[in-house]
């Protein structure tokens, strides 16, 4: 790559391709020694009078007002908190919702009932719950007494 072309590109601050960027990084690494010439320059010293003048200016200086969102954030946050507390305190009384516990009890009862019915179906000689109940009822209709048995 022609280095003069690169220099011209750098001067015009036009975009560099990947290869040129790598070359620039390499050249910067190689030119680190130039940095030393600046590091050798003496550090400037400001006088105590300058410092005193600055301190006196700062003492009388009004500080910039807070940003608007910082001014309003506290009252808004307070109102939001109060609103949230009010909602928590009053909402359960005003809205009549079924308690979730009741729904659970219902589900449990239905489940228990189904289990009992299934058990009966299995254990009572192959009869369904309805048939089983009917059999018992028909048995009760023919509930014979001791006298009847004696006749037999």
């Amino acid at each position: 790559m022609n280095l003069n072309e690169l220099l011209q590109k750098l001067e015009s601050e036009s975009g560099l391709n990947e290869q040129e960027q790598v070359l620039l990084d390499q050249l910067l690494a190689e030119s680190e020694g130039v940095k030393a010439s600046l590091q050798h320059l003496e550090e400037d010293q400001l006088s105590m009078a300058w410092r005193s003048e600055l301190s006196s200016k700062l003492a009388t200086m009004p500080v910039a007002p807070k940003p608007r969102w910082l001014v309003w954030i506290r009252p808004v946050a307070g109102l939001a908190l109060a609103g949230a507390l009010a909602t928590v305190a009053f909402l359960p009384k005003s809205i009549d919702r079924p308690a979730p516990v009741q729904a659970d009890v219902e589900r449990e009862l239905v489940s228990l009932h189904r289990e009992v019915v299934t058990n009966r179906d299995v254990t009572e000689f192959g009869l369904t719950a309805y048939e089983s109940r009917e059999t018992k009822e028909s048995d009760s209709l023919h509930d014979w007494s001791e006298a009847d048995l004696g006749i037999l």
């Binding site: 220099l7 750098l10 001067e11 601050e13 560099l16 620039l24 990084d25 910067l28 130039v34 940095k35």
Partner: peptide, 8 residues
């Protein structure tokens, strides 16, 4: 980076 290299 470009300006730094030109300056150096």
């Amino acid at each position: 980076k470009s300006r730094l290299f030109l300056a150096r």
